[in-house]
């Protein structure tokens, strides 16, 4: 394994992001605006219906929930398939493929470089802020679970992104597919509302899918609104999902890499 090249990939993408600081910061602000929108909507719902809590969530709980979701979204994104689509569109995927590196891993670390920057600039500061205003006392178990969940979620979202990205070698333009996937992840993963808001049966089904761990489970762990048994169940099932998705991605990549040469030029 060419570790140096992966560290180099992380460094390169951080440098490239910092080359356009204004755009980078505006993009972080854009993500914040998206969360702000959700906060406004939920404020309207709570104040309009005059209920003090929905399925155990008070309005301050909702604020806190979306704050944590915002922090998590600094890691959870669809940058990887967009990067792959770009490489296919300009044909540079072929050049990249002549280097002595594992191409999927190289791509992963390129993306990780970008995410590392945003987690340092937004993710961690926001989590600290959320912790400070929530007065929540996180147990050692919750902290450990949170870290494991985030790592699992990041791996899952990267593999899903990579899978979508390989489609670009076949279909070239995949922006719509990426957007649809992301919307599904947001909706079924707790990015629009906590999964508790779904009817109980659907909620159980959603906990079986690989999306719940992306935003909902870590956010709920952070807020302490999820039972330890559900946390353990989610970690277990997500691990199984990760293995399955990795298997699918390996097969997809072995097919897709035969198409690299036909990518423009």
């Amino acid at each position: 394994m060419n570790v140096g090249s992966y560290l180099g990939a992380i460094e390169m993408s951080i440098k490239a992001d910092l080359a356009y600081k204004a755009d980078y910061l505006l993009n972080l602000f854009f993500k914040f605006l998206q969360v702000l929108l959700l906060i406004f909507i939920w404020t309207a719902i709570y104040l309009g219906t005059k209920v003090s809590s929905i399925r155990g969530f008070t309005l301050p709980d909702i604020y806190l929930y979306f704050l944590v979701v915002y922090a998590l979204r600094s890691l959870m994104n669809m940058n990887l398939p967009y990067e792959m689509e770009d490489l296919v569109l300009d044909g540079n995927i072929a050049v990249n493929y002549t280097r002595p590196v594992n191409f999927p891993l190289q791509l992963f670390f390129m993306g990780f470089g970008e995410d590392l920057l945003s987690i340092l600039l937004t993710g961690i500061p926001i989590l600290i802020f959320a912790l400070a205003i929530s007065h929540a006392m996180l147990s050692a178990f919750s902290i450990a679970a949170f870290v494991i969940e985030v790592l699992l979620a990041y791996a899952i979202i990267s593999v899903i992104g990579f899978l979508i990205g390989t489609m670009s070698l076949k279909f070239v333009y995949i922006s719509s597919l990426i957007n649809i996937t992301w919307l599904i992840v947001l909706l079924l993963g707790g990015g629009v509302m906590p999964l508790n808001f779904f009817p109980a049966t659907i909620q159980h089904m959603l906990l079986m899918l690989p999306f719940a761990i992306v935003l909902y489970v870590p956010a709920a762990t952070f807020l302490g609104t999820i039972s330890n048994s559900t946390i353990l169940f989610s970690i277990g099932i997500s691990t199984v999902w990760l293995v399955v998705l990795l298997g699918i991605a390996t097969v997809a990549w072995n097919r897709a890499r035969k198409l690299i040469a036909s990518a423009r030029g």
Partner: peptide, 13 residues
């Protein structure tokens, strides 16, 4: 490998 029509150089750096 030098593919004349494709660059390895990162455009932004």
């Amino acid at each position: 490998v030098v593919l004349g029509a494709h660059t390895q150089i990162n455009w932004n750096l």
